[in-house]
Design a protein around this nucleic acid. Structure first.
Lengths: 204, 204
DNA sequence: GCGCCATCTGACACAACGTGCCATATGACA
DNA sequence: TGTCATATGGCACGTTGTGTCAGATGGCGC
């Protein structure tokens, strides 16, 4: 893509090493029991350098989501076809997963497991989702002249929820595959209309 | 309601003092610049006691949301009428706000402002919303025999998103009133169907 | 190939967070 | 009133995240 300089390459290499060390150590010993010092040592950088790449320990865990969302927004920006907003967003997220190799997907599963089992990580993960929804909004707003703000926001939140729930359910599978995740995302997007219309019967 | 003993009363009093001190100091000096020591001193408790009431500084800021959600779930549990799930949840949240006095609403505005301006607070706030959705789910699941899990989850996430977005928009008003918030929540719940059907036109 | 310059790293120091521990005080209860 | 359970305060400790600065390293013009 870009950044062919040695400097930039080294930087990405370091970042990747930090993420890998974080996911491995946290998966092995638990998130809280893993100190940043241990991660930094494993990644062969200083603790100070760790915090130059990531503002907090949690952000190193969700780094893959961060990259994925950036890719999704990139893809989303290229789409010009007419379609439901939730479908465009869901499709962008689903397709973004195809832009990475097998090793990435292996680490992605580790990150997702931490995401769903450590409340502290889930918190920053949800905040990342909210920020991402905001970015989708910025790209989508100009294309929707006559749509009220709150309708657009509700659609984006719903679409991102579809992604999050899909990933959570996908993790429960015995052997989570990239294709399986895409399938669940599409199913959730399709099920959103049914969900908003879901009626609870009277009781007692 | 309950807990008429002197011991329980003192406890609630302390908790209230801590929350008030947290909101006042954080509003005045900013969240990051406010130390737990300062909060504890203002509330006339030790720092150690602060952490017995709240696991982290952020949780003291969102304590009112926490109470509100508990009230909402309580109300939700009493409702027996047939209605769309998102409407039941939205209505429970909207009605819960009526169970508090003016002073509570004044503090609620402060908490909401911090919620939307401090990323760190927003993160734990979102996680609280996710936990709350899980509680709604537990109460709703038995009433929906033939509904797939993912449809129920999508409905709950959508409803909670409606609440969150309503509160955020409500904060932008010149003078946020309790009635105004309820109105926005109801509007968002009604707009959810429109949002999921929102179509983006083709470009270029 | 050489030297200047911007940028990144490592090391140290430091305030603040969050927790385990224990002595002490205070309300509940017989 | 005496006993007991429970909550508090104080202390120490490891960890987090940040400001600061000297030194290293890659980019780039000459």
């Amino acid at each position: 893509m870009e950044a062919v300089g040695l400097r930039e390459r080294k930087k990405l290499e370091r970042r990747g090493a930090i993420v890998a060390a974080t996911l491995d150590l946290c998966t092995e010993n638990g998130f809280d029991a893993t100190t940043v010092d241990a991660i930094a040592e494993r990644a062969d950088v200083s603790r100070r350098t760790f915090f130059r790449f990531f503002p907090a320990k949690e952000n190193a865990v969700i780094a893959l989501d961060d990259d994925l969302f950036a890719t999704a927004i990139d893809l989303f920006d290229r789409s010009t076809r007419a379609a439901p907003a939730i479908e465009l967003v869901g499709e962008a997220l689903a397709e973004a997963t195809t832009h990475y190799d097998d090793d990435w997907h292996r680490r992605f599963v580790l990150a997702a497991r931490l995401h769903d089992s450590v409340p502290h990580v889930e918190a920053v993960g949800l905040e990342l989702c909210a920020r991402t929804a905001g970015q989708f909004r910025a790209h989508l707003r100009p294309r929707l002249e006559h749509t009220p703000d709150h309708v657009l926001d509700l659609a984006l939140e719903a679409a991102v929820s579809g992604w999050r729930l899909a990933r959570a359910e996908w993790l429960l599978a015995a052997a989570p595959t990239p294709a399986g995740l895409r399938e669940l995302v599409r199913r959730n997007v399709q099920a959103l209309a049914e969900a908003t219309a879901l009626v609870v019967p009277a009781t007692s």
